[in-house]
Nucleic acid binder design. Structure first.
Lengths: 254, 254
DNA sequence: ATTGACATTGACGTAACGTAAAGGTGTAAA
DNA sequence: TTTACACCTTTACGTTACGTCAATGTCAAT
């Protein structure tokens, strides 16, 4: 329950220098100083450090973090929820960069072409600017149930909209898959289109995408009775066919 | 096809100061200097800047980046593939932090307890150290199909291992769910445990997790015939029950 | 001819620590 | 008891990747 610098540093994965610096700038003072002048941290400091690291992860500057967490009207839970949103945004951006890398590989291998604009997709981050505004002034004024509710509502509307598209996509996967299955070749153009549609379909519920995960799911379609039963219901062998098509599509064959 | 500092900066989402600095330290020199002393960048420089930004995204220092991309034995495609791996790792870490935020919210709302250790899950990043080693020396020596293959193999083994645990978890979800269904209350402790197990189970195939996605999937369990048929097979109403349990678990009820 | 948006090269500033240096503290083993 | 060794302390200078002036030149349009 009580930690010295080193113990806390180890726990939190930061350096002891960082903790001393945080003490120096007054963002995280130890609970007490013992008789030999050692810094002793307690439960409250552990929690506070966690808060600091959450903000740091988002690229918020330390003096701004200080402003935020020392503010009397600081609502921890609301802040954490806002945090979640930001982290999800960040992940979306990461996914963009990963897609960019994938495309760049394809380009270097001569399979596709990329515009100069495309080459920098995912790097532009207005995220920091937004943080400035959000955390700078608005947070203390605007934070209330209204804002949270509004953003939730917006999300619901979005998912509602997406859901319609999602269902249409699902049908389209099935149709294309059926047509492709008739050709018997999982490498055929139609089968690859089905795999691509399937990827798009996935992205609606996954929010992210990786070739590995897609391929893993493809394998599961055969190994998991739920999926297998569904796909084989219409035509026996369809599950395996879809798996093979996806494995080829993702380049994860063998 | 030709860019001045500002144009390129805009394209890539960096500042003009950054481009001048990159020129100064010799990491990205313009293709030519025009008659008025302006820096003019061409296609090759665009590609090189993209490379630099990929590395920067991973936290590699500029002088190290310089070493890497000016190395004669630098294999662009191999580097990009290595890159992909790193970015996926980074996303995994982000997912850890998001899960951490979720848990912290639950804790602050008094729903669960967290150990001090848990509070810092996701922050510890040996990633940078690893980058140091990987990109520092080994890259130029070791880069070859062997390394790539080896890492792929490792990934396959890992998923193999995970798969066993994954199946065990799946069974455990079903068992707990059945027991919980008997109580009839989706908010019951047992039902919430089932929802938690379901989350864990999901994480094996999703690799990431968000409450929204989980809740979305829960709704899909009722709306999508495949899942509904599976869960209702044993007991009619099970799909709805699981959905409700998950909606409560994720705090997305209504 | 002037305006305004571009460009240039210095040169100093900064954030968040890293990295010694020089020394005190606590305890376990020789 | 001394010695070793792993802790802790403060002070202070170094570092990275730019940000931010300042002073000045260029270009196109009005």
């Amino acid at each position: 329950m009580e930690y010295t610098v080193q113990k806390l540093a180890e726990l939190a994965g930061v350096s002891t220098r960082t903790l001393r610096y945080y003490d120096e700038i007054g963002i995280l003072k130890p609970a007490r100083i013992n008789s030999s002048g050692y810094r002793i941290y307690g439960r409250a400091e552990v929690d506070r450090l966690q808060q600091i690291l959450f903000y740091r992860e988002l690229g918020v500057k330390l003096d701004k973090i200080k402003d935020i967490i020392t503010s009397s009207s600081f609502d921890e839970i609301a802040a954490l929820k806002e945090h979640r949103e930001k982290l999800l945004e960040k992940r979306t951006q990461l996914d963009l960069i990963i897609t960019n890398v994938d495309k760049t590989i394809a380009m270097k291998e001569g399979r596709i072409k990329m515009s100069d604009k495309e080459k920098f997709k995912g790097f532009k981050q207005k995220l920091i600017e937004e943080n400035e505004r959000k955390y700078g002034k608005e947070i203390r004024d605007k934070y209330g149930d209204e804002v949270v509710e509004q953003s939730n509502k917006k999300f619901k509307e979005m998912t509602q909209e997406q859901y319609a598209e999602f269902e249409r996509l699902g049908e389209s996967v099935n149709k294309t898959l059926k047509a492709a299955f008739a050709t018997g070749d999982p490498a055929s153009e139609l089968a690859q289109k089905a795999a691509d549609l399937h990827r798009q379909w996935l992205c609606y519920t996954w929010g992210n995408y990786s070739k590995e995960a897609h391929a893993g799911l493809a394998k599961m379609y055969v190994e998991d009775e739920r999926f297998k039963a569904y796909y084989d219901k219409e035509q026996p062998g369809m599950a395996e066919f879809l798996r093979d098509a996806i494995l080829i599509y993702t380049g994860m064959k063998d």
